[in-house]
Amino acid sequence: MLEIENMQVSYGQSKVIQGVSFKAEKNETLAIMGRNGMGKTTLFKALMGILPSKADKAMIDSESIQGDESHQRVAKGIAYVPQGRMIFPAMTVEENIETGLEKSGDRVIPDDIYALFPVLFDMKKRKGGNLSGGQQQQLAIARALVTNPKVLLLDEPTEGIQPSIIKDIAKVLNEIRKMREITIIVSEQVLSFTMEIADRIIVIERGNFIHEDKRDDVDAAKIKKYLSV
């Protein structure tokens, strides 16, 4: 469970996240939707401790993550799949995943990871930088998953990826949630993808949450209007 109260993030003088509050439960997938430049990445980076932020409260389960550095937050149970993947290009696929083993202390990659992403098993010894965009996305998810997170953050996982692979990613995310009963928070612009995975949708605009719906009550036309320019 992740609980945030009144989080604010600024770049110098310009405040980009204007005091947002939300709570995401265990075994829930929450989608944060918004157009380009509305603050999704900024919010995720702040949650990850990459950007400094102010908040009245920032908790994972009953532990505060206020002021923690990224690696401490990972240890408390957040994992991050950034926009643009950001895998380590000069390392092999296997080594990329191993960087995530820091928290569990395992020496070898657990089998269930390769069961989720068979393609990564076949490409174990290849350099990460030489994978396709879709494969890199899977690699980034695998690297985050081996940290055994309680909360998994994915920033626009479908960006630049073809429809058939988007379907695969949706399937994998649903499977992960079923298997591990974790909290998944995903930022998105594609409504069809969101509808396949999310239990709840929040719309962000200029750093404010302006709309929230359970999936079953979603008025697609209304959300589409928020997402179009």
């Binding site: 990459i50 390392m91 820091e102």
Partner: peptide, 21 residues
């Protein structure tokens, strides 16, 4: 060595996978 190489290639991301850079 893995930690060192990860940190060299992308410091921010190395931190975000749990490495104390």
């Amino acid at each position: 060595g893995l930690r060192v190489r990860a940190t060299v290639q992308n410091r921010v991301m190395a931190g975000a996978v749990g490495i104390n850079t």
